[in-house]
Design a protein around this nucleic acid. Sequence first.
DNA 1: TAAATAGTGTCTTTCAGACAATATCTC
DNA 2: GAGATATTGTCTGAAAGACACTATTTA
Lengths: 243, 243
Amino acid sequence: MTQALPAGNGLGFERPLATVDVAIFTAAGDRLQVLLAQRPDVPEDPFPGRWALPGGFIDVQQDRTLLHCARRKLKEKTGVATSYLEQLGSWGGADRDPRGWSATHAYFALMPFVSVRGAAADAEAGAVPTRWASVEDALKLRLAFDHREILQAAVDRVRSKVEYTSLPAFLLPEPFTLPQLQHVYEVVLGRPLDKSAFRRRMLDAGFLEEAESVAAGARVAQGYRIADRSAPAVFPRTFKSAE
Amino acid sequence: MTQALPAGNGLGFERPLATVDVAIFTAAGDRLQVLLAQRPDVPEDPFPGRWALPGGFIDVQQDRTLLHCARRKLKEKTGVATSYLEQLGSWGGADRDPRGWSATHAYFALMPFVSVRGAAADAEAGAVPTRWASVEDALKLRLAFDHREILQAAVDRVRSKVEYTSLPAFLLPEPFTLPQLQHVYEVVLGRPLDKSAFRRRMLDAGFLEEAESVAAGARVAQGYRIADRSAPAVFPRTFKSAE
DNA sequence: TAAATAGTGTCTTTCAGACAATATCTC
DNA sequence: GAGATATTGTCTGAAAGACACTATTTA
């Protein structure tokens, strides 16, 4: 604001590249999984052939807001329109994209597992290849851009919110049982939880509504559904206060 | 990613305007205060004469990263280089700026009170007018752009983190006393806290180190300093679990 | 020495962890 | 009916709230 501005309105500033990336999580195979998309293997691309978080340029013709842009990318990659979607943060700088100063608006999404091959079939021809990878595996890859850092931040955010919110419920198809929900919590947290304390906590929080019973394992169990999908429930304490 | 791209690398997309805005908070006069900057009163400006959060365009020549850009704006407006600075989120869309599709990266900062007139004197001639306003007053103003929404989000974030972190300590000049710290907590939360529980909590959290005594009110009290300014301490529970 | 504020002690309440006990379903 | 898993009950412990109490400093 303190420099000479052409036309006096700031429009003379060179504009950075602007993208949206989405870390899409699900739970499968006793692991937290994240969706990866492969960069096109052409020399013009900054990271040809590398795996990356799904995302891309904001389309100012098509996207009314950042959130719309994120929903569009989620839909294009998974075919899923409704899922938990939260803004994670933004990463921007001169060095993160060889094509120039760029800033990305990062989101994360939580959804029940769907086969991603099937979703890709729904997409238009020429859709980029996508696959689920366990978070540990994904973090070991040399992801494109600074996507490793973004993925790490997304995982940190999810793990930390799992300690005191009902977020993992969004990873399950409905209706689900309390043992199934506990299992997802344990998968994300990487440690076992006490059954009794877990059930008390979930039921006291009041974010579940009873649904039809589910025949999950050796016997049927009470099914539940998320009462309000607009936001996760917040518990009064974290799972493990003491260390 | 599914459209025809000039040169095949996405650089053909029209680029949105890119800005950084900072909600800078302090505590003064028993109120949480936020710094406002006045938009230039010229017809080319989208909101001439209106109050706004300090901020402006990213300068790709000058700013290495988004964080650097935020620090620069903080420094320009307050003269303060060191303070707590955290990313809040980003707001972007077709309608938020009449000049075109724009996205802003919003940060919030916490700092001890300084007179802003003095800081403005340090700034170059032509610096825009700035002033502190209580958060309630600021939210009643017709701020420029969507800054009311961003300010509300910043206030919500600060209020919520105050329930379980040591954030308010960053609003005080050091050394400060525990009664002073409690007072700031009460100002931000808008409700009184129990003295005994408060002191236990702060001291048990271990984020304070003893400093010289301070003659604050009717008698001197033990002074304290933040042991680690890089991040706030997190308490095992919120202040008020029950409702 | 009185007023005011700094600082402490202790009882109660809330809710998570541990773990045992009981109920229900499938085979 | 046996085995497995779902569901409940009870005891303990950590930390917050309530509130009374003591200590220190200034005027």
